[in-house]
Design a protein around this nucleic acid. Structure first.
Lengths: 341, 341
DNA sequence: CTGAAAGCGCTTACAG
DNA sequence: CTGAAAGCGCTTACAG
């Protein structure tokens, strides 16, 4: 909050050298050779005056912002915290910053966000969003390279996703191996790309195990506790409720757990539950939630690295697969009643 | 991801007007009067070429970035999601963007973050951090106005906080009114400013109720589920555990609930629990958690508004008080055994 | 090897 | 009333 604004010129004047020398010292220009004491003097002056380069000027001149942007749908979803963490770390390792914003916070949607960034503010954009296909057209008008994170979009060759099918299969296979045959799926929102892939994984794992998917055993919910709570109600309302449920997202599972408890359905005794995405919260729920751990942080990291390294026209179609693993806790067990043979 | 870069000049050439006219049309300069059809033609050309102003150039010229920054300690803490939401909304309403980053993601701490932003990248900074007093010195070298959010710092006159004392009092008074006399406090981290104020609220509410704070009845934990889990263990390990506990943060309460369950301590029958900060998660825990709702979103909103409106040298010492209210759920009830008289 | 000079893309006071 | 021109703070190819 100093009132004076220190520029390169001030440093040069004070140190008794040309502006270009100061600039080269700051940027470690290998082509510059000055006497060590001059270099020292320049650095001391920078320190003394508290000089910080003007990012706008540098960005205008070099056409690089040394900053990436990440747009997510909602900060309240803990899944994104992990993605952000990975992306921030990757950006930092490259000497870049990462600025994250949520589409709910951007008033007029994607287009407004792109206007806000304009050119010159970021060198690339990560979209971990829920943009519709309609919005992809807007994305194409962006003058900045972008990559979709944790989702694909018809016609786009620029995405990094998780191996959702494998994760789902792991969850379902676990329930099958415990002896469950009547396994329901508390799926994601109808439109969500992740939800689609997890549902596909569930369906193919059920098929491979020769298990039927009973009527009404796939219910949709958004990735929130209240969404999961309502969806499990529907599952429990049927004539013969399932003995196990595979939940597409840990946030939904929190609500589902609550509903089960409210209905006197004991987890895991009456109902086994396994959900996608492991996080500290899962181990502290009652009962501790069995989950499939997906490499969310790695997803963020990879997406940012590819955004930084690959040219704006190159395809990026990567699936981050490691690790996808089952984390056993207390919410799954053998079914109480042996299924009829 | 268009390959060509469209500038103001391109628009001017194409529309057959001077660059300055285009600029004035974009910025709605009231001093400009051109024929409506010219204005129309300029706007059409902008649309046609997909022109977006270069933020760096504009920022360099006007010395305004139309962007604010927010630094938080950790995206995984849901408390910050609310603060971000309020701050993003306020920024949007002013025609500004907000870029959020976490100090864990910024490699070398506050100083590196300030370097990254330099001048020209943001018009002001919000710190919802856990910076130590040591780092305040660095903050003073920032060439950009800043405000602390949800914390104070010795010697600083630039902060917006919640009424933590009142919130704590509400929680403790609720427990007292239920008949509890042996009330413990699962406090925040030793160094945390919020934790300090909540502990002060607890202590003064206990004093006003003529209730003793027993030995070992104040334990510290960081604001995470595992922190809360460990801290409650210590509380339960004593010779005469409390009948009620006031938890400084909902994230800690998640872990505390888990510990209680693991030890066969039934909440609320054996132990009543109330925590600071209401959020969707709280209503979906088992049992539903009684909380004190604090105006987190409003905190973010106010902080950003004051940052935008007040001059860089003006004092900002605001307490956001509305609403602070008790949200009754299932985790609190009357004590099972009447305390000895 | 060093430093003067051009120029990135805008905005706006000012001359015509 | 309009448009030419200066200049924000940098970087870097190039002349000396």
């Amino acid at each position: 909050m100093r009132s004076v604004k220190v520029t390169l010129n001030d440093v040069a004047l004070q140190a008794g050298v040309d502006r270009s020398v100061v600039s080269r010292v700051i940027n470690d220009d290998p082509k510059l050779n000055v006497r060590p004491e001059t270099r020292r003097r320049v650095k001391d002056t920078i320190e003394k005056l508290g000089y910080r380069p003007n990012a706008a000027a540098r960005s205008l001149r070099t056409n690089r912002a040394y900053m990436f942007g990440l747009l997510i749908p909602d900060f309240a979803n803990p899944v994104y915290a992990e993605i952000i963490k990975g992306a921030e770390a990757a950006a930092g390792a490259l000497g870049y910053g990462l600025m994250t914003a949520s589409s709910s916070g951007v008033r007029l949607g994607l287009s407004h966000y792109l206007d806000l960034l304009g050119q010159g503010r970021v060198d690339g954009l990560l979209f971990a969003g829920e943009e519709s296909g309609h919005e992809l057209a807007q994305l194409r008008t962006a003058e900045v390279p972008w990559v979709l994170v944790n989702r694909t979009l018809a016609g786009s060759q620029r995405y990094v996703v998780l191996d959702d099918e494998r994760g789902s299969r792991l969850a379902v296979d676990h329930l099958v191996s415990l002896g469950h045959r009547r396994i329901a799926h508390l799926a994601g929102p109808e439109g969500a790309d992740t939800g689609r892939r997890r549902r596909a994984g569930y369906l193919s794992a059920m098929r491979d195990a020769n298990l039927p998917v009973e009527d009404g055993f796939v219910v949709h919910a958004d990735y929130t506790p209240s969404g999961g709570a309502v969806a499990l109600e529907r599952l429990l309302a049927g004539p013969r409720p399932p003995t196990a449920v595979f939940v597409a997202n840990v946030a939904s599972a929190v609500g589902a757990l609550h509903t089960a408890h409210a209905h006197g359905v004991s987890v895991p005794r009456d109902l086994s539950m396994v959900a996608v995405h492991d996080m500290p919260l899962a181990s502290h729920l009652v009962p501790g939630l069995t989950t499939v751990r997906m490499p969310l942080e790695e997803l963020g990291r990879r997406a940012l690295e590819l955004l930084a390294r690959r040219g704006p026209e190159e395809a990026i179609t990567e699936v981050v697969t490691d690790p996808v693993e089952l984390v056993l806790r207390q919410s799954t067990t053998t079914p109480r009643v042996e299924p009829a043979r």
